[in-house]
């Protein structure tokens, strides 16, 4: 990788992504890092006992990128990590579809594991994304904005 070809760390996109392609980019011309840790989040078919049919992801353009850049910077200050990639999809997503990707490389596995988890935990409570779910209950379809979970805030607080 040359200076004319900087590694793009953050992508907010409607289109799907390929795990294999992302891993290949994290590894390309990267011979110093022996560890590659990836996390992929997907749309599941259930939430709080309701049957979920789809999710719609809204975000705050501009702030999203800024907050993710800040989280990545914090991770780099805290652990010895090489490359970081964060992808978050927006728009309507159906069951089984990929929503989010976090990939981190490091010389040894501990730093990549920890930094990856930190980035996801902070993304959950700091990055301006909101999920609206379409659910079916007793044959009736309705749309609800998801409520934030205190368990996510508690988990993120563990890092501070």
């Amino acid at each position: 990788m040359t200076s004319q070809d900087p590694f793009k760390e953050i992508s907010i996109q409607t289109e799907d992504f390929s795990l294999a392609d992302e891993v290949a980019l994290l590894e390309k011309n990267n011979l110093t890092d022996g560890a590659v840790v990836t996390f992929t989040g997907r749309v599941r078919n259930n939430n709080n006992g309701n049957s979920v049919t789809s999710l719609t992801l809204e975000h705050y353009p501009g702030m999203t990128e800024k907050s993710l850049a800040k989280i990545i910077k914090q991770a780099k200050e805290q652990w010895h990590i090489g490359r970081v990639k964060v992808i978050h999809r927006i728009g309507e997503l159906h069951i089984g579809e990929q929503i989010v990707f976090v990939g981190v490389t490091s010389k040894h596995r501990q730093d990549a594991y920890a930094a990856n988890e930190f980035i996801m935990d902070y993304l959950k409570v700091k990055a301006p994304f909101w999920k609206k779910e379409k659910i079916t209950n007793a044959g009736k379809t309705s749309e609800n904005w998801l409520a934030a979970k205190s368990s996510d805030t508690d988990k993120a607080d563990l890092w501070s």
Binding site: L57, Y60, V125, P128, A147
Partner: peptide
């Protein structure tokens, strides 16, 4: 200035 509910991404 932006106002919004607690975030729920990821």
């Amino acid at each position: 200035v932006a106002f919004f509910p607690p975030v729920t991404g990821g």
